[in-house]
Design a protein around this nucleic acid. Structure first.
Lengths: 216, 216
DNA sequence: TAGATTGTTAATCGATTAACAATC
DNA sequence: TAGATTGTTAATCGATTAACAATC
């Protein structure tokens, strides 16, 4: 309907809003203003209003936003009103950690299949799921209606895994491996690149030339 | 010396450059052009040249950049020419996964102390480190010259842990908990928020109204 | 010399913020 | 009615890209 292009920056903030609204809802808070949200989320209130206004008129002037209504709306926007099925490849420490997060990701994204290239892992249980061999990837993606893949394999294997996901018809990938995957049309790739996040943190360490209070 | 403010976007790309340059170096490739880099990293070559030019003239016209020299320079810029010590709090699956990444983070960032609020975890070994109780956090940060803290505790505890880190004099925090931490001057906070990354991925799933090839 | 590629300026594009009329 | 807060326009700010002279 609306042909307006929504910027990535806007979409990236929606889950942040959603998360905090969920907290408010649990505390039985029914109304929230862009002012309140801005303070808690360290964002400009005007930006929050503008972000939301791209998708509709969700607030009431002089009043604010109804928390539960806004939750519902943001979930619709993100297409999390129906469950989205996810597959994960790579059952190292990180992969297992993410599988157990399933509890947390109650936001209608559900890891339903886990894979590992290592044959010896086959049949192992992780959070009530049986680890499958890579040969089953394509069939599982189709059968289980999986649209998103999570990649938690070592860097050198990541592109290969991505290629297999893409061949299987995946729609989106969340890549934890520290490599830049080749982009392909029709497949959205997000990176969860904490090594880069950590290294860039170093840059800011001494630029703050603040008072050293200790010479002990 | 140079009073030019470097944007966050630029700093965030530096580790990406560094990572790929390290790969090139391992393959004994000695020279690289912004063109090459742009193709492999899916970035505009002009942007790469501009990013690097903020910090000096590292390339040679008509030739390109010397890989090892550029690595050295980027490491200097990020202040990774000397080892930076890191503490981690929260020894769940994710925390343990990150500790074992130490091998990978050979980029002069080193996790040297691990903490957990759960007293029963005290004394456990993770990647040759002994898990310490939270009471020791402040002393350890001082004694071990720790400047960066990693937070891998459940969301409700994250702010408390951040406060303790800040009180101990930490300079930077990498937060994996899905909450927005209160900003304080002099402490840089980066978020490694993969739940947000995953949820925002959902948004893009059906906007691509591509041909559905299957009606089986 | 001819070809390649940088460093940098100018042009474009996009995102954030301020301001305010509309209205609850 | 007075106070509060949205939705939205306009102004500002910042980041990306194109273009090209300089030069290896």
């Amino acid at each position: 309907m609306k042909p307006i292009k929504i910027s990535e920056a806007v979409v990236r903030r929606l889950p942040i809003y959603l998360r905090f609204l969920n907290e408010l809802s649990l505390s039985n808070i029914q109304t929230v203003s862009s002012q309140d949200l801005g303070e808690k989320l360290d964002l400009n209130p005007a930006q929050i209003r503008k972000d939301l206004a791209y998708f509709g008129e969700f607030g009431r002037k002089g009043v604010g936003y109804n928390v539960d209504y806004l939750i519902e709306k943001i979930r619709q926007i993100l297409k999390l009103d129906k469950t989205m099925y996810v597959a994960l490849v790579g059952t190292g420490n990180l992969g297992r950690a993410l599988c157990n997060y399933n509890t947390y990701i109650k936001d209608n994204m559900k890891i339903v299949a886990v894979f590992d290239a290592d044959e010896s892992k086959k049949g192992t249980q992780i959070n009530h799921m049986t680890v499958r061999p890579m040969q089953e990837l394509s069939a599982s993606v189709q059968q289980l209606d999986i649209s998103v893949g999570i990649i938690t394999v070592p860097a050198p294997e990541a592109q290969n895994v991505a290629d297999q996901f893409i061949a299987a018809g995946i729609r989106g990938l969340l890549n934890f491996a520290p490599v830049v995957l080749k982009a392909v049309p029709g497949v959205r790739i997000h990176n969860a690149d904490f090594t880069a996040e950590l290294l860039s943190l170093a840059y800011y360490m001494d630029h703050i030339n603040e008072a050293k209070e200790g010479d002990e």
